[in-house]
Design a protein around this nucleic acid. Structure first.
Length: 404
DNA sequence: TCTGGGGTCCTTAATCTA
DNA sequence: TCTGTAGATTAAGGACCC
């Protein structure tokens, strides 16, 4: 029995929110992103703006040339995040199996919801109706036996669409679509596939897996093969959360003043530190990102001994990386800093494994067993295996606790 | 022609370590 | 104790997504 997965994709989300909140914008081309005259790109264009050929990721100068009469607004991330939480709440009223994939996208597992909401089609219509009624916003919905198919389907008929793919129709549904419809196939992969004469998913699906692995590597080839055959996970559930936090800043004019760079890096480091502390995280890997003239982009990173959430540690390491780099003195278009390799409960506890074998007592081995049970044993080194030769426990309060 | 910001995942190469 | 090696970790860059 296959599962029934829905993918919900909000239509022109940022622009639709602004049009909803300011009725004078209704029916007008609204462009959310950088403001004309600055360096930046379009984040979201309303459907009215798309008629002029404006689309997301387009340089704002180009958008302005195509649509000078458009209304240009900066994105209001906080507002969109709040609305995203409202969307999640609406979806959770329909089924608890909800996973937000981004601020404006979600997956739902509606398998077995017939008794509550009727057929899968009726459930999908209910989702659209509730979002429209409660938030005055439109969305497109795709339904399929797994996440990949649901996602591709939601993109077929936008805006305000509903596309349903039954498991038995999967191959016929995919075959005539362009390969670029597959999430993960972007400009570059498309180019390589085009050179091989592959334009449609059906053509891609006819290529033996070995050939794809040869061309795109083990993971890449395997992934293309699976996707072209409509194979993907049908699990809907929240993951482990984010894996990195970064902040960056593009200068209006390439920056040459070291003092100014230092100042911006200090500010970015402080923002990251604050965010880390707010989320109760700390990280070991610090990354400096730098973009020079001609869009020449580099990153350099350094792993430190102890995880940190301290502004000054982040700043000092980032500044060291910059000073030690080959880029000092060159005009800087963008500077950024990031923290990753977060300290997890598992990592803190894995410190136990780092103890020299001679110092490991029986209770340390017991604690290690508990960690293996909880987090899996993949990262546990064989040398840490319990071999029976444990050391004597420390005597506490004059009383022997345990002895080998 | 002009390319933001904040993320994830993958590949490759160098280095470390059991 | 020395040495070769496989696997893990680190670092940098690229592709992709919203």
């Amino acid at each position: 029995m296959s599962r029934v997965i829905l993918h919900i994709d909000m239509d022109a989300f940022f622009a639709a929110v602004e049009q909803r909140d300011d009725p004078s914008l209704a029916g007008k081309p609204v462009i959310i992103g950088a403001l004309p005259g600055s360096r930046g790109v379009v984040s979201t264009a309303s459907y009215e703006a798309r008629k002029y050929g404006v689309h997301s990721a387009m340089p704002i100068a180009q958008a302005y040339k195509r649509c000078p009469q458009g209304v240009y607004l900066s994105p209001d991330g906080r507002k969109y995040f709040q609305i995203s939480k409202q969307i999640k709440a609406i979806l959770q009223d329909i089924t608890p199996r909800v996973q937000m994939a981004s601020v404006d996208e979600a997956y739902l597992d509606i398998t077995g919801c017939e008794k509550l909401h009727g057929t899968p089609r009726q459930t999908a219509l209910l989702v659209k109706e509730q979002i429209r009624k409660q938030l005055q916003l439109g969305c497109s919905v795709g339904m399929g036996p797994n996440r990949l198919i649901a996602k591709i389907a939601s993109d077929i008929d936008k805006p305000d669409g509903l596309t349903i793919v039954m498991p038995e129709d999967l191959a016929d549904f995919l075959a005539p679509l362009e390969v670029g419809r597959i999430p993960g196939i972007g400009k570059q992969t498309n180019k390589v596939l085009a050179k091989l004469g592959i334009k449609l998913i059906g053509q891609l699906a006819s290529i033996p897996k070995e050939i794809l692995v040869e061309r795109f590597g083990e993971k890449g080839g395997e992934s293309l093969y699976r996707k072209s055959h409509g194979i993907s996970s049908d699990f809907v559930g929240e993951g482990e959360g984010r894996k990195s936090i970064s902040k960056e800043r593009t200068f209006g004019v390439d920056e040459t003043s070291e003092e100014k760079l230092r100042h911006v890096l200090l500010k970015l480091s402080g923002d990251i530190g604050r965010q880390l502390r707010k989320e109760n995280r700390s990280g070991r890997c610090l990354t400096l990102k730098i973009r020079l003239e001609g869009f020449e982009t580099h990153t350099c990173s350094k792993t430190i001994d102890k995880p940190t959430d301290a502004d000054d540690v982040i700043f000092n390491k980032a500044w060291d990386l910059y000073r030690q780099s080959a880029y000092t003195g060159r005009p800087v278009r963008l500077i950024g800093v990031g923290v990753s390799d977060f300290d997890s409960e598992a990592r803190v506890q894995l410190d136990l494994f780092e103890q020299p074998k001679k110092q490991k007592t029986r209770s340390v081995y017991q604690a290690m067993d508990a960690i293996r049970d909880k987090f899996g044993s993949n990262s546990i080194k064989p040398a840490d295996a319990y071999d029976g030769n444990v050391n004597k426990e420390k005597v506490e309060g004059g009383r022997k606790k345990e002895e080998n």
